[in-house]
Amino acid sequence: MAVNFPHSTSQPLLEVKDLCVSIPSYGRSVALIEHISFTLREREILGLVGESGSGKSVTATAIMGLLDTPGLKITGSVRFRGQELVGLSARKMRAIRGRDIAMIFQDPMTAFTPVYTVGWQIDEQIMAHERLSRKQARERTVQLLAEMGVPDPTRTANRYPHQLSGGLRQRAVIAMALSCNPTLLIADEPTTALDVTVQAQILELISTLRDTHGSSVLLITHDMGVVAETCDSVMVLYSGRIAETGLAEALFAHPRHPYTTALLNSIPPFYGERPHRLPAIAGTPPAPHERPAGCAFSPRCHDAQTICSTIPPLSPAGNGQQAACFFSTSGQQEH
């Protein structure tokens, strides 16, 4: 289906198809994520939403080729600009990592090696991918830090991670991620560990990256508010499977999967009277090894019926959205 993204050409940058990751546990194979498929276009910001344990980080680290737990099995396909990443040799993957695909991690406190200056570590990444002298690398580092809104970048580059505040450190992390002009930036909960005020600044920074650096962003978060603010399209994960995908605006207006509905209901409304208590989703998501047969959300779903004991396929639900629910088209979520 042809969907026009406001900021993107229709050229797909990243195509993930049927990505599955499983790990052996007590003699059987437990799937951490199952049949994850999505497409990310150039300059698009895709939000990957879900509770902790839903497989967001596994998906991201699998794309980056950073999953190396012994026994782990990855199947499916990840095509980056047409090149298959699953099964790519470690050497070739290394050349892509950091240069074409960069990653920002959740906790800026621990993202830097404590014994080197921030600048040294950014220089290191630049010099790993480009033939530059240390001096040239440092020039770019300082420039990047300045672009990220770091005050006094020359001095900050010479400081150690523990000497910087959380917000500054996260800016430095982003500067490092952007140091080789990556076309894809994966941000794994980049604001979770930060103060609320700083969160807003960092999100603002990330959403401008596509204009300043031409990067697409895969933004991982558990916060629907963050998605609403920054993302073009959304993918909701539940217990390692896709629950729903679609353009952000459409999905927020008409959620088709009961889990999405529940997630949205748990955010306080911007306008109108605030409910006395925000509705919470009863129960907890199942751990990968005790996922029920059929729809993983059915034990927590108000509308679950007998048919829900088989796995619902991801099917079009109108408006460019897709949802993995048997009742997604009947519009019964709109109560």
Partner: peptide, 11 residues
């Protein structure tokens, strides 16, 4: 985490 960062840098 910082070792993971180092790997993500493509070192």
């Amino acid at each position: 985490d910082f070792m993971r960062t180092a790997r993500a840098k493509g070192l």
